[in-house]
Design a binder for these strands. Structure first.
Lengths: 334, 334
DNA sequence: GTGAAAGCGCTAACAG
DNA sequence: CTGTTAGCGCTTTCAC
């Protein structure tokens, strides 16, 4: 594997000149340019990125952390982030936690070892750890799709509280009073979904209704989980059964729909269902899904801008908050 | 940011000793170990991964190339690959081509610049380029979900020909004779899908049927594409309309189902549909999908083993071919 | 056991 | 314009 000094020798010039030529700097005479290029071609030379990284103390690598990329919403988020970052000359490294905090820790360690210039976290397992690392490297971390109560942490924030309220109120307008709620994490979660859960509680209070604890499904976020919830609901008798369910992800919603339909219930007549995210699949569900659309592109853009403005001195403009609207998309399921 | 020599100085030892300590090598006396550890703690030292990489000429980074990670099947493949590789101490870097050959080229360049120890390609845009790079770095590239006619290229191969034939024969047994075919790429593609397409042609020949060119849909692989195909089919009159359609991915199949159902046709009575991949979503489709299941885990394992055996001297056993079965999963759509 | 020193391949500062 | 040199932080001989 040829090195820069071999090229220098072969071209009969100094290594500095080769370096300058490689980096398109001025002050390299025509004849030497030709000789250098000839040497490069002949020896099949390719500069070593690692050496450059060591020199420049920067890798141009950004880490992206997710619980699992098979979650379509997270995949869409990654898609947008990667496209964005690649266009700016960065490579993206993906790590999945599969809900394991140690995986998150190992991931974050890479910023300490300088393998990563920065990270975008679309999942967080251990909020305290994140706070701690963020305190040490405030410019290298940004949260996307997760929010932590901490002004010092860069994060993309959306008004999930209001969006949830909108969804719930829509259901209310349709005449539903017994509305079940399937959270994405634990209930109440300390982070993601906290504001959604808060909205659920406030909604009940505002309408002077009482929450039926049996209608809270603090399950995980998969299709299978939704299916289990749907089966549970289908077994309830008429009085116990909720009239509608607000879920925290389209996947859960689709699982619910499949299960209740299999049990002979109709959607939305017997059970109205509202999803969250507006995944592409949502409109192709057995009953097109009413859901809350997240502005994936804008979210990714803002996350990237937030991160890059911390890495580079030259501040990039951060996407405006105005683009970060969550909107209720009404379809046939509710 | 503390460096190893600062630690050495603080601990009153030589850098070599610190390095040995860090790497758990023997020959470091107890007292020095303590002093070194104390210095490390005090200065918050973390070794620089880049320097180690430059020294060792290896990054422990593997690249994974896909057209787009939002394709659920590719996401599942990545999930399996990443999990596998992480367990072996490697980090995975994802690049999406979005069907752009230049993106593929930039990606492959990283193996020349030694940013990546190796790559797994789950998509290939320019087969010639891949052949060329693979010839140069035979140990650093493995193909997954793509096959290129070239014995010198490491790749995970499956019998798509037979699987396609099985799917088609199943449709034949159900009494269908006019069977449409939606390929994943161009028809005939030179790579992926080539064997599937070949099977389609051979199937027609074997049953002494004639292929109706109008029943070939050489579209791309998304939900939207499937939807368009479905709309096209729905507009055909009874005589022109196919009785069944064999698609090259579940996404396309689901798009087709949604569109024909929307147009008032019944599945499978008016149109039987067979998918490919057996994505999780497939069983939750409006009509649970008959499809061909790909052994994702085993495929990923074999790809990783194939790659690692090339990178390390110590040969890892490659997963057996026997696990790489494609199986027809019969559900309600056909 | 352990310190000193020589690089890994590149860039940037400094003389000419 | 351009060659030389000094590191970036780490590992690995090689003596002592």
């Amino acid at each position: 594997m040829a090195t820069i000094s071999e090229i220098a020798k072969a071209a009969g010039v100094g290594v500095g000149t080769v370096s300058r030529y490689l980096n398109n700097e001025p002050h390299v005479s025509e004849p030497k340019q030709k000789k250098i290029q000839a040497a490069i071609d002949e020896l099949h030379y390719t500069p070593s990125a690692i050496a450059t990284q060591l020199r420049s103390q920067t890798t141009k690598n950004i880490g992206f952390l997710v619980s699992r990329i098979t979650n379509p919403f997270l995949a869409a988020l990654f898609d947008a982030v990667e496209t964005n970052l690649k266009a700016r000359g960065y490579q993206v490294l993906v790590s999945q936690t599969h809900d394991d905090p140690t995986a998150e820790k190992r991931f974050l360690d890479q910023i300490k070892t300088h393998q990563l210039d920065g990270v975008i976290m679309a999942s967080v397992e251990d909020a305290d750890l994140v706070r701690q690392i963020a305190a040490e490297y405030p410019n290298s971390i940004v949260l996307l799709n997760e929010e932590i109560e901490d002004a010092a942490i860069k994060q993309v924030t959306l008004d999930h509280y209001q969006a949830t309220l909108n969804g719930l109120n829509y259901l209310y307008q349709q005449g539903h009073r017994r509305i079940a709620y399937a959270t994405g994490g634990d209930f109440p979660s300390l982070r993601h979904g906290q504001s959604r859960t808060q909205a659920y509680q406030d909604f009940y209070t505002a309408h002077q209704l009482t929450i039926d604890p049996n209608l809270i499904y603090p399950k995980r976020h998969g299709l299978k989980d939704g299916q289990m919830i749907g089966e549970t609901i289908a077994q309830l008798n008429r009085a116990q059964r909720p009239e509608a369910i607000f879920t925290n992800s389209d996947e859960v919603a689709m699982g619910v729909i499949a299960a209740v339909q299999a049990a002979g219930l109709r959607v939305p007549e017997d059970l109205a269902v509202v999803g969250y995210d507006d995944q592409p699949m949502a409109q192709f569900a057995p009953v097109p899904l009413t859901t809350i659309k997240q502005p994936v592109r804008a979210m990714a853009e803002q996350a990237v801008a937030l991160l890059l403005q911390g890495l580079n001195a030259k501040a990039e403009p951060v996407a405006s908050k105005r683009d970060l609207q969550l909107t209720l998309v009404i379809r046939k399921s509710a």
